[in-house]
Design a protein around this nucleic acid. Structure first.
Lengths: 202, 202
DNA sequence: GTCTATAAGAGGATAGAC
DNA sequence: GTCTATCCTCTTATAGAC
């Protein structure tokens, strides 16, 4: 009995995710979702009290997965170079992106073009989650500066922005072109990024 | 008399553009536009026979402006280095982007997340316009290869993709962060791009 | 938990008067 | 060209039976 409930709910969530991803918030409608899940609209409202609640339930889930996959990071505990720590973070994030490109596309869509009805709530949640990430990265950058791996002429926040831009570019690139990058590509990109944008070797 | 007509039409177009930009296609509704323009919905249908026609009229206009601003390029006629030609193209495109960031945001929105109802027509138009651009750039890249400014180990199409990625990254960056780049920033970025990604100096 | 039935309203679009 | 009036469809959401 309880199993059946979950199957229905899982179907709702999966179908809704696809629709929110491809059609956007306004383009998604409850009727279509219910038809695909093979239930009546009134049944969906047993699980979620509104379209908004359904949406944010999915949105928060994705962020949760993403953050977990990054912070579940044993590499950061052992005593390796902070430069390598940053590299591992980068690899983990792009790995997540590679394996979950649709989730990144989902997040990017609602970050760049939030539907009016949910824009305030979206902004709040987005700021909360990205702040969580920034704290981790800033900490590592500070370590790099302390050990002279990065020049202290630039501020740690400056380096953070540089790193975020680098990462964001690649994620957007993957979302737009839908091409997965090989580990070798990632290494090359990282090498160029570090030498050209972080330590200004060129 | 004819002047009044244009004022109404201009108001419709401007108001619609803002709405399509910020609320998307599905999120935009004729009633709201008409209320802002201070006309009745039936009046709008005197100028445009449907929501789609209104949208594409605006969409094509933006591409037209963009292409015109690039191809209106006297620099390409005189006999300068093809490397400099590419640089000028890049500067013109980013200049256009800087001065018309909302237009780039509009194009990016409908490129990345086309509304279902208009997706086929959008794809066709997008392919047409980008193809126009690609022809110009490929021609210059070929000149670079001919003069050994670029290594012929990589194909011209390979270089084209590299250039497009570089350009796209910056445009997306500006759209997301809403920060305009100074001419000095652009030069630095170009310098790094050319040396790191085109001629592989690092 | 899932259904039928339906409320309540928003949306695109048209007919026809002025 | 702009209006009034209206059609018809689609949408979220609820009441209440089973």
């Amino acid at each position: 009995m309880e199993n059946l409930i979950n199957i229905t709910n899982d179907n709702i969530r999966y179908t809704s995710f696809i629709s929110f991803l491809e059609k956007g918030y306004e383009g998604t409608n409850i009727r279509d979702i219910c038809m695909k899940v093979n239930i009546k609209p009134s049944s969906l409202y047993f699980y979620y009290k509104s379209k908004q609640e359904l949406f944010f339930s999915i949105y928060d889930d994705i962020w949760n997965n993403k953050i977990t996959s990054i912070s579940n990071n044993d590499d950061l505990d052992i005593n390796i170079s902070p430069k390598m720590k940053l590299y591992y973070i980068y690899k983990k994030k792009i790995d997540f992106c590679t394996n979950n490109i649709v989730y990144e596309k989902f997040l990017l869509r609602y970050h760049m073009f939030p539907a009016e009805e949910i824009s305030t709530a979206l902004r709040n949640r987005f700021n909360f989650w990205t702040n969580e990430e920034n704290i981790i990265i800033l900490n590592i950058i500070d370590q790099c500066i302390d050990r002279n791996l990065l020049d202290n002429i630039r501020s740690s926040n400056d380096y953070l922005q540089e790193y975020k831009r680098f990462e964001s570019n690649q994620i957007v690139d993957m979302v737009i072109s839908n091409i997965k990058k090989s580990p070798e590509d990632l290494d090359t990109l990282w090498y160029k990024f570090w030498n050209c944008n972080m330590i200004n070797m060129i």
